[in-house]
Design a protein around this nucleic acid. Structure first.
Lengths: 128, 128
DNA sequence: CTAGATGCAAAGACTTTGCGCGACC
DNA sequence: GGTCGCGCAAAGTCTTTGCATCTAG
């Protein structure tokens, strides 16, 4: 794989941005440094990076998929249903959960996704 | 909410079908009993049922969202990356995981989604 | 030179919306 | 008769594809 400026930029945006941006947002950000970059390139690049395991695609149908730069530890996500913010939380039980799922389902498990949905601190009713 | 034949049919399809079908598949099945039913109705109905908590929408961007008729117990899913099959597995630790996520993130958690990805028994290399 | 990348535009898949008609209470 | 639901068609959003051009090795 060739490390083009566009690819470097996309990876950089992802690792600098903890908010797990959607493709459109990545496109907007990359436009600032490489104004000619097309959406097609963004999508193609995300695809490549996904394939080589540099990032994880979090599928969402409302507002588009979100992208998560690969980290060593398995982590879960907390998703704010109001503002769309997505934070990470550690998931210490991953191996355990995976083992149990494999045992019960007879599936051969390769990865997992754990999301919690609710309201982030900023969007919670200010009844406190 | 009015229980129209279409709505009954959709709920029935979902509870009879453990494969968590996508909207298109529900549409195809309902066509057999109500040939005039439109896609719009399917989507609108799924929306309503989701709102009143009768089903859960599992967001996927490839091949469309999948729908899961609500069950009492929280359960996780195992997704076959090859054939798209989705089975349920019990998730006994749900409350525990949720509590920890809430604590670490300060989010107010309302629900969760736990998916495991891998290969179903039929799609595993037959090396056994 | 040639394989891999880019960028444009068009196509595609899935979903939502607007609106008039019809059914239920 | 007013509200809610249906069905059609059109529009919308996000993503992918085809193809010509460009570029690094």
């Amino acid at each position: 794989m060739r490390m083009t400026p566009q690819r470097v930029a996309i990876l950089r945006i992802l690792s600098d941005d903890p908010s797990h941006p959607p493709a459109e947002r990545i496109f907007e950000e990359i436009e600032q440094t490489f104004p000619t970059t097309s959406r097609a390139t963004v999508y193609k690049t995300l695809d490549v990076l996904k394939e080589i395991g540099q990032l994880i695609e979090l599928e969402f149908s409302d507002g588009g998929n979100r992208y998560d730069a690969m980290r060593i530890t398995t982590h879960a996500h907390v998703v704010c249903e109001r503002c769309g913010r997505i934070d990470d939380v550690e998931l210490y039980e991953a191996a355990q959960l995976r083992a149990r799922a494999a045992q019960h389902s007879k599936f051969q498990i390769k990865s997992e996704r754990v999301d919690f949905y609710g309201l982030c601190p900023d969007c919670q009713p200010a009844s406190n």
